[in-house]
Every structure is written in structure tokens, then in C-alpha cells.
Design a protein around this nucleic acid. Structure first.
Lengths: 107, 107
DNA sequence: TTCATATTTGGCACAATAACCAAATGTTTA
DNA sequence: TAAACATTTGGTTATTGTGCCAAATATGAA
């Protein structure tokens, strides 16, 4: 199968979602938000980076459709929208376990 | 939960795997390799980029532990190693469907 | 050995990311 | 309205990622 324009577009769309997940800070927030929703300030404390940085990370997750946003007074609460993103992470875990096994085998 | 050093390291490891997937060309190859193994030359034809570029993409997938490599004569065959990477993509598909639904709702 | 083919690696140019600070926006409280 | 707080946006810089070409490496065939 050749990667024609249609196919390329399809892969770009999918890759965009994966890219949104593919950053340690965003991954961390996805996991935290899986438990309950938090406002930007709370997430900033947990993450330990500048508020503006965290806000930008959240906008990336938002644009990818991975989180929900809800304004309450002067706070903005984020929550995990795509629960199946967690399955992602389980699969990643499986990859890592297998990598660890390989390293054992190599000894 | 704070993102301490241990937690940061854990997220970096996981993100590294997602990063390896988060590119249209690599995503395409993952899907192609899910069906059967191919050599670099065949993949290059399908992808339509320079061989060196394809080779580098493959090395990224290899380093992430997502594909297997097998040398046969002067050819190098790649195959999908982590089948569960495909579940990843099903989940991505679900995200995309939900996004499309949102756009419908917005009308 | 020499040639042809297959793949990888190095180097360069350009685009995209991610971090911070500072400034702008929006919202509640005094 | 003014001040305080929460969040977002703009700008800058450093780092990384991606693509191509050219060169290096590896393997099989003549």
C-alpha cells in the first residue's frame, strides 16, 4: 500500500493526537486528571513548572480533544475526556516490560 | 500528587515510546508492518521519502522497541513487535470519532 | 577482487517545541 | 472602581526533529 495523499492526511491526523500525549508533563497531567479534575493552579503546583508553560501544555491537550474544560469563577478546571487514553498507557507499560525482559535476556 | 524526580523519570520513559509513534510516516509504517514484514527498500517505495529518511525513522522505532529487525542477505527486514501498538491506534480512532461528533453537535 | 545493490550514518538547513518572563485578559472581592 | 488573583498569550532563546544529499558500510554477484 502506497502512502498517497489521503493516507498521509489520515496518518497526520492520528499522529497529531499521539503528539499531544507524547510529552512527560502532559502524560503526567493526563494521569492525574484521570482521577479527578483540577484547575490550572493546582496542576502547576504538581508539575512544578511555570504557570504559562502548564497552560500551554493544557491547551495542547485541549486542542487534541483529550481533556474537557470547565470555567468556575476565576478558575478553569480540566478533566480527562478520553478515558481510553489510559489504555494507551497500559500498552506503553507492556512495551516497557518487554524491553526490560530483553535486557535481562541479553545478560 | 507531585511530579517528583522519580515520577518525572517514569513519565519521560513513557513519553519516549509515544514520541516514537507520534509521526505520520512512522505511524504509517507501523500499520503496514502489522500485516507483514518489509525491507527498507519496500518501505521507502511505499512512503515516498528518501531512503536515508526512512532508515532514520526505522531506527527510531527500533530504539523504542516497537519493531523487530532481521537481516537476510543484503536486505534488512522490519516487522511489528508490539502488537498492542495497534490498540493505541484504535483508541486514537475513538478520539477522532468523538471529535467529529462534537463538530456535528456544534452545528 | 571489483561491481552493484541495500542500508546506515554524518552533515547541513529549516521547522517545530518547550521553557521562561512579561504583558494582556478575565473574574471576583474590597 | 481599584486591587488581587487566575489564566492565557506574545516574545525570546535553546533544543530537538525532519528532510535531503553525500559518504560510509555491508553483503552478494560477476
Amino acid at each position: 500500500m502506497k502512502m498517497n495523499n489521503r493516507e498521509r492526511a489520515r496518518c497526520e491526523t492520528r499522529a497529531a493526537i499521539l503528539k499531544a500525549l507524547a510529552h512527560p508533563t502532559r502524560l503526567f497531567m493526563i494521569e492525574v486528571l484521570a482521577k479527578k479534575s483540577y484547575c490550572v493552579f493546582e496542576l502547576t503546583e504538581m508539575v512544578g513548572l511555570d504557570v504559562s508553560t502548564v497552560s500551554k501544555h493544557l491547551s495542547i491537550l485541549r486542542n487534541a480533544g483529550l481533556v474537557n474544560v470547565e470555567k468556575k469563577g476565576k478558575h478553569v478546571f480540566y478533566s480527562l475526556r478520553m478515558r481510553c487514553a489510559l489504555n494507551f498507557l497500559d500498552c506503553v507499560e507492556a512495551v516497557l516490560r518487554e524491553q526490560a525482559q530483553d535486557r535481562m535476556d541479553a545478560i
